[in-house]
Design a protein around this nucleic acid. Structure first.
Lengths: 144, 144
DNA sequence: TTGGTAGCGGACAAATTTGTCCGTTTTCGG
DNA sequence: CCGAAAACGGACAAATTTGTCCGCTACCAA
């Protein structure tokens, strides 16, 4: 479904959102430990998220990652997925055909339509913050 | 969504089914040309499908690939996907967590549930033959 | 029987994804 | 100002996926 990088990215974003909700800025080491991901690789992904203004980063001692109130309100799951993978997951053809559309459909086009649409809607209407809340309440986990 | 190998596999299976519907056995070169795929790589994939009895292969001159009447009636899209990728696409956790289930859900677990279920149902209820029919009727394409 | 044809299977090669290392830059606290 | 701490950025390494090559085997037709 998603690439490893994207999985790590989502998990990291959700964890950062949870900590930011508590007013806590969190560092790379802490994040990698919390989401059970390779530290250096996770750093690369966080850089992408930061460059695309989905999260905030700061250097130096006391530095780390956080999400602003505005980011917590506006950053959707689809933003993270689009930044790391692309939007091809929910827009591209299921059989990899470049020119597949309603006029020139692949044999799976109609069968896939509903699923892709549902996936798209889910990603675009789910905020990272919502996911963080289910973490915070203990209703969900991010490890193992 | 699917791997390249799986995309080629599905496209090849659909094309073979279409030709078999016409009573025509078709060779590797013909298949690769019809579905616009790398020939040698496609050969590997067809071997997998053949070993798993999803298609029939025969050597020698006049050899090639085909689907028996029985295979045309029973082989589902899910069989091809399971053979080449795995069933992880519609059973695994969206965030890659090994121990994610209803008891210990990842934050996306419930959001994903419906989509995975719909995908699973679609793959399991769609026969390769059905897809071949939409090709045969000109309602769908397999190239580009 | 024999020659050619087509799939089989193993080894190899290229490309992409995943993951690591380390020096540099920024920033904070003393 | 200075030293340490943390993210940044570029180069490198490993693993996986994608793709190729070629000799081998089976099979058909003449």
């Amino acid at each position: 479904m998603f690439s490893k990088a994207c999985e790590y990215g989502i998990r990291a974003a959700v964890y950062i959102a949870q900590q930011s909700g508590r007013g806590v800025r969190t560092g790379l080491k802490d994040i990698a430990e919390a989401i059970d991901s390779p530290e250096a690789f996770t750093a690369k992904i966080l850089q992408q998220l930061s460059k695309n203004d989905l999260i905030q980063s700061s250097k130096g001692p006391t530095g780390g990652f956080e999400m602003t109130a505005h980011q917590l309100q506006t950053v959707m799951l689809s933003d993270v997925v689009r930044t790391i993978d692309s939007n091809l997951i929910y827009t591209g053809c299921g059989l990899g055909l470049a020119n597949c559309d309603a006029q020139n459909p692949c044999p799976l086009h109609h069968e896939f339509m509903g699923i892709r649409e549902q996936l798209k809607t889910m990603l675009e209407t789910t905020a990272i913050r919502q996911l963080a809340e289910s973490l915070e309440s203990g209703a969900a986990i991010l490890k193992r």
